[in-house]
Design a protein around this nucleic acid. Structure first.
Lengths: 282, 282
DNA sequence: GAGGCGCCGTATCATATGTTACGTATTTTG
DNA sequence: CAAAATACGTAACATATGATACGGCGCCTC
């Protein structure tokens, strides 16, 4: 069982990452599908593997040959050995392979996970339900808007909400454009705002005017609370601090997805009917 | 793939434990060896299995037949499925639920955390570094685009990248608009694409044409890999499965933030100088 | 633009692998 | 204790599976 790769790579995944650059297109595709479904796809037959990767069988074999294995079964044995080691020491799987450096996983990931846990610790189910109910109210209109970095979150949420209910509008473009839409907003409508520091003056002004017209405001902000909180009916504060030059909006993003899910469940039959109907229109 | 065991046993290990008593001596040895080396010995060949158990091949086959499988490959598939389920949700192994206050946390949150951990388990530091290097190359242009639901992610990333380096363009609007921009793209440029299922034809076509022009493509997709992977120089696959009507893009979002951070670090002094400069302009 | 090189897929081949038939050994039962 | 039934292994068989030879195609070089 001698291998001709005297390499330092401890896992096959690392070995692949190292040599990924030196690979031709087809084999790289094989490598990528293996990584994406690691390692189980490698335990199936060559035919299965090749089909999943969208290349031919010989390409798969050339791929494993390039990794230094003499034949396919030897490659599979190596994968199994690796799996066996993982399964036997459950502790190792937490720190597992990815990080080649100090052994600890990406600090970015860790910080994000912490932020998510901390964010949801402060959000009650009741709160989510209430907001979802408001967002599911098809009688009024729903408007979404965000700040410099968070506007994409508003877009993301709008794209989903527009599918499960009518009258969803994302406010984009020049400030003057959405300011003019205030004329159409009333007490039956809901305005969902994403705003993290540094809070934009224009958004605050907009929120205040909408509030004066009786619009129900849902604010998703950071833990320091945008001044818009003053006018908001519901406020959710996500954690955004990171060991980075930037703040993270990941927790806001997950909140958005959670609200989308909750609203979808509330609309239930009505919502899924719209989804089906819309799919047929495509 | 219907099995004739209408049994309630959820895992094959349980199934074996149930029927262990009713088995003849040889098959019992087979069963015990399988349990002792669960489940890897079952993924090897019948010959390996039989030798390890000290019985003959037919005994192994009779054993799996008794478990209700029609043939050996079907048995192996079942084992692999089980293994896949285990590997995909690392948290589910710890059967101990939420230590804090009796209440169970949001399943949405749990699924998201799992997805994130699993995503980063398949992404190497090396890969992130390589991509960040490419994104930090100020000589060429950087283009970003996304699909129906992922375009906001492209926008989010573009908003940040545009601050730390010049010539960042988010491709939005009509297909014809960004298709025309192909004319400006060359081998020094990089195109970052977000694409999750169901994959859009228009994006694939666009990626192919860009690839033909020598543009370096970075693809951020789901674990089933967009067909664009065929043309991509770098591929990162995030987990998107959720206990919801929708897939989640949260892992893709965090990947985006990680790349932003990595690129920022690489540009370092140059990047922070631009940030300061830009702040002064506001 | 012509020639050379490397990559990749089709088709074919060799064989490892699962499957089955059958005879012997072992246990069970009257 | 005898006879039947079940269990188990040996050996032959069929086929799924990995390996290879070959030709076309695109890409780079000169």
């Amino acid at each position: 069982m001698q291998r001709e790769r005297d390499n330092m790579a401890s896992s096959i995944a690392e070995l692949i990452a190292e040599r990924l650059d030196a690979m031709p297109a087809g084999e790289r595709r094989a490598a990528q599908t293996l990584i994406a479904n690691y390692p189980l796809i490698g335990l199936k037959t060559v035919a299965d593997f090749s089909q999943q990767a969208g290349v031919s069988s010989p390409t798969i074999l050339r791929f494993v040959a390039r990794l230094g294995f003499h034949n396919y079964p030897e490659f599979q044995s190596a994968l199994q050995d690796e799996l066996a080691a993982q399964l036997q020491s459950p502790a190792s799987r937490t720190l597992a392979p990815a990080a080649s450096g100090g052994g600890k996983a990406s600090p970015m990931l860790e910080a994000t996970l912490d932020n998510l846990r901390e964010t949801f610790r402060h959000v009650s189910d009741r709160q989510l339900t209430d907001i979802a109910t408001k967002l599911s109210d098809r009688r009024g209109h729903m408007f979404l808007i965000g700040g410099r970095f968070t506007d994409p979150l508003a877009r993301y949420m709008a794209a989903h909400m527009a599918i499960i209910r009518p009258n969803v509008f994302h406010l984009s473009g020049q400030e003057s454009i959405w300011r003019d839409r205030l004329i159409d907003m009333g007490k039956h409508d809901v305005l969902l705002i994403f705003d993290i520091r540094r809070y934009q003056e224009s958004l605050v002004r907009f929120a205040e005017k909408a509030h004066q017209r009786g619009v129900q405001i849902v604010l998703i902000t950071d833990q320091w609370l945008s001044p818009i909180a003053r006018f908001a009916r519901h406020v959710i504060a996500g954690r955004t601090a990171m060991p980075s030059a930037w703040d993270s909006s990941a927790s806001l993003f997950v909140i958005a997805e959670t609200l989308i899910d909750a609203a979808t469940r509330q609309l239930d039959t009505e919502g899924t009917r719209r989804i089906r109907e819309m799919e047929e229109l495509r």
